[in-house]
């Protein structure tokens, strides 16, 4: 798993779509003939991956939204995993 820089700007991968599904009461990530049902932390991270915000921005944003600190390693680990699975891409 590659190290994730705080300045990386991840974006949801081509062919993937993140959306809220009321019937499942969850965010899901949709891709060709498949679906990943996301837990709320994964959804919180992925929904902020817009190719504009850096990983550092995302950490700050989630920490303030949930009123917690020290999420940096968790977010970096998730971004690395998501990148490996193709859910996230790093462009530019």
């Amino acid at each position: 798993m590659s190290a994730v820089s705080a300045e990386t700007k991840p974006v949801v991968g081509r062919g993937f779509r993140l959306q809220w599904e009321p019937a499942q009461e969850a965010h899901v990530l949709l891709y060709p003939e498949g679906m990943v049902k996301l837990n709320s932390s994964a959804a919180a991270i992925l929904s902020r991956c817009d190719g504009i915000r850096t990983v550092a921005d995302i950490v700050t944003d989630i920490e303030s939204a949930y009123g917690v600190t020290g999420l940096s390693p968790d977010v970096a680990a998730f971004v690395a995993l998501a990148q490996e699975k193709g859910w996230l891409e790093i462009r530019g």
């Binding site: 003939e33 498949g34 990943v36 996301l38 837990n39 919180a44 949930y66 968790d74 680990a77």
Partner: peptide, 16 residues
């Protein structure tokens, strides 16, 4: 249908 592909709990933020 890859519904089995769950996000590992280890990567979840606290309380989730």
């Amino acid at each position: 249908f890859h519904t089995d592909e769950q996000v590992p709990a280890a990567t979840a933020a606290p309380g989730l």
